[in-house]
Computed example of a mutant assay.
Amino acid sequence: MRTTTLGRDGPVVGRLGLGAMGLSYRYAPASRSRGEAVALVRKAVDLGVNLVETAGAYASGENERLIGEAIRGRRDEVVLCTGGGLLGDLDGVLRPAGGPRALRAAVDDSLRRLHVDHIDLYLLRRVDPGVPLEESWGALAEQVWAGKIRMLGLPVVTVQEARAAEAVHEAAAMAAEVSLFTRCGLDDVVPYTVQRRIALLAGAPLGRGLLAGALSRYDDLPLDDWRRTQPRFAPRAIRHNFALTQAVAQVAARHAVTPAQVALAWLLRLGEHVVPLPGTRAPHHLEENLGGDRVRLTEQDLTDLEFLPYPAGAPEV
């Protein structure tokens, strides 16, 4: 796998990471197996994935506990990314919690659940509208100086906000939902991350599964799947959005690859600093996703994908 560096002088990571949220949170929780999830993370590391992303708010900390178990004995092989600034409720709603006291507690809780003595990359997951960004960022900078965190990452913010935060402490990464279906803000965010040598971590790079081409109907979703509550997966919207994926499938057919691999290859073309974080619970999909690094899109492919219409329904929250 090709590699890149987190920030100016951070660790070397593979161009494709692993987003762990779906292993224990939001996507059909009744069908999950903890043992299979742990095995999948370990398989990802075996295959060369070294950036693993989780968060304290995922399943009330259970996702971090799972990752901690999975990397036990292999800590040196993993660049561990987690984050705070959000509180997760049993109803799946995430609420901002960016006060200094809450963030300090969140870091300590993450260290305990992950069974590690430091976190490689800690993301501020969301700007709390009730707390100045510089105050939240400063509280996390203190944790860097205390040796609990190596590097910090921003959520999606304006360029002005990013500069204000970096006046307090530099950012090694910015995390955003980015895919062929979610391209808002790229004109501003990508140039800034390139200029500042900040890694862009692309979450939900497969459009929560839509871009893989496997979801064509609302009824394809399990009854306990969080996506049933999201506008892009409403019955009429999902039919419309599935039709859009046929353009991706046509590009995939030219290369004898899958739509998911094309969607990931498109993201990788945005810049060497872009690191998609696809998530999956299936080992064969894990291997399929990693194949996206080998797809080389042509100018015709890129033109066809550039004019892909925006999907129906607002982005997920």
Rank of each mutant, 00 (worst) to 15 (best):
R294A: 13
P259I: 07
D46S: 01
P100V: 07
A171I: 03
A199L: 03
P283F: 07
L180N: 07
P283N: 04
L201P: 02
T54L: 09
L221H: 01
L18R: 11
L152Q: 05
R294S: 13
I149T: 04
E62W: 10
A102T: 06
R281C: 10
G19A: 02
T54W: 06
V79A: 13
E170W: 11
I71H: 10
E62P: 02
R112P: 00
C81R: 07
S60Y: 09
L114I: 00
V178H: 03
W137F: 08
A44C: 08
P283L: 05
A212E: 07
V251N: 01
P278I: 02
V38L: 09
L286Y: 01
Q261N: 12
V295E: 01
L302W: 12
G7R: 06
A55P: 06
L290D: 04
D304C: 14
H273W: 10
V317S: 15
E142Y: 06
R183A: 07
N289Q: 12
R296W: 09
D219H: 05
A105M: 11
A102Q: 15
I198G: 02
G203S: 15
D188S: 13
R208C: 13
L215C: 02
V274N: 04
R112C: 06
H240F: 15
L286F: 01
V168S: 01
E77L: 14
A204N: 06
Q230D: 11
L305F: 04
P222W: 07
L80V: 03
R95Y: 00
E299W: 12
V159T: 12
G209Y: 06
L23C: 10
G98F: 01
L94A: 15
L215M: 08
E36G: 11
H118S: 07
A202P: 04
G99S: 15
E62G: 08
V52F: 09
Y27Q: 14
Q143W: 02
H255G: 00
V144E: 08
L180T: 04
A102P: 09
C81K: 06
L87Q: 14
L154W: 05
R150Y: 13
D219T: 15
R217S: 03
E134Q: 12
D108G: 10
E288A: 13
T82D: 03
L23F: 11
A171G: 09
G98D: 07
W145C: 13
G84W: 00
M21C: 06
T258R: 11
L297F: 04
G56K: 08
V116N: 00
D220Q: 00
R236L: 14
V52I: 15
G88T: 07
L290M: 07
E288F: 04
A176G: 07
G292W: 04
Y25K: 11
S179L: 01
P235S: 01
T158M: 06
R232C: 13
S31C: 05
R75V: 00
R232I: 12
R32V: 15
E134D: 09
R296G: 09
D219Y: 04
A164Q: 15
E287G: 05
A204K: 03
R296C: 13
T4V: 09
E142K: 11
D76N: 12
A44F: 10
G292I: 06
L16M: 12
L40P: 09
H255T: 10
A167T: 01
